[in-house]
Simulated scan of single mutants.
Amino acid sequence: MGRRPYGVLVALSLAAAGCGSDGEGASDGPFCKGRTAGHLLCADFDEGPVESGWDSLDLRSGGTIDTVTEPVRSSPNAALVRASADARAVAYLVKTLQGPVTQVHVAFDLRVESAGNGDSGATILKLETSAGHQVTFNVNNAGDALGCSGAEFVAGAEPSSVVCATPLSMATWTRVDIEANYAEGSGYVVIRVGGRSEALVELPLHASLGTTFGVALGVRTYVGGGRWQVAFDNVTID
């Protein structure tokens, strides 16, 4: 976590590295043991309970988060989140940082196994700079593929949202890399996938910075019905 002067932009970049079937492309051995020290969080779900290193679990309306051995991005384990869109369920791993935060870097591997019904959607990531300001990355069932969007929620204002330029793939491991840089009242979000230079989403922000900064990773379902199952692995926050 770092601090930047007023007027710095936000870059929210998602880089995808994929495999098509369960277990294919999984790396050998635990991820975190091979990393350099200094992360505020490194979670590969290979040791201890699924919430190890996180501050809390947010589970509501039947949402669950469990350690699984399949699918994984790095062996032996990953986290699998299950949530029903019929129940508008929540299943989040939550990390709280001391604020005000003007720079945060979050990276993780993501794999959507099932995405509810055709009109179902879910928030996968929530960054909360204060009680009155949130930035989210959202995924929806778009038939053969996954639609997505980036959104900003500011207290007292209508939400702003930008739809992704191209769809995401089902049942494919995707590396998500997020670098957020912003200051009070300003900022910008850029979402990229697959290491491409072109942006999937570009979204201006109007940040309101608080004394804490929340990172919530998992699934919060909205709209439509059916069941969501999303696997996560190799999470870092710094």
Rank of each mutant, 00 (worst) to 15 (best):
G2I: 00
G7I: 05
G20Y: 04
D22A: 14
E24I: 03
G25D: 02
S27K: 04
D28E: 13
C32W: 05
G34R: 02
T36S: 15
L40G: 12
C42H: 04
C42Q: 08
C42E: 07
A43F: 02
E47M: 02
P49K: 04
E51K: 02
L57R: 00
L59W: 01
R60G: 02
G63Q: 01
D66V: 15
V68Y: 11
T69P: 01
P71M: 03
V72S: 13
R73Y: 13
N77M: 04
N77K: 06
R82A: 06
A83N: 00
A87K: 15
R88G: 12
A89S: 15
Y92F: 15
L93R: 04
T96Y: 10
L97P: 03
T102F: 05
Q103Y: 09
A107E: 14
F108N: 06
S114K: 01
S114R: 00
A115K: 01
N117V: 05
D119G: 13
S120Q: 07
K126Y: 07
A131R: 10
G132N: 12
V135L: 13
T136K: 15
V139H: 05
V139I: 15
N140V: 10
G143F: 07
G150Y: 02
A151I: 01
V154K: 15
A157V: 03
E158V: 03
E158L: 04
P159S: 07
P159F: 06
S161T: 15
V162A: 15
T166Y: 06
P167S: 12
L168C: 08
S169K: 14
T172Y: 08
T172N: 08
W173P: 10
W173H: 08
T174V: 10
D177A: 13
D177M: 11
I178C: 07
Y182V: 06
G185Q: 11
S186V: 09
S186W: 10
G194D: 13
G194Q: 09
S197M: 08
H206F: 00
S208H: 06
S208Q: 10
S208A: 15
G210W: 10
G210R: 05
T212P: 01
L217K: 00
V219M: 00
G224L: 09
R227C: 02
R227F: 07
V230N: 10
N234C: 11
V235I: 11
V235Q: 04
T236F: 03
D238R: 14
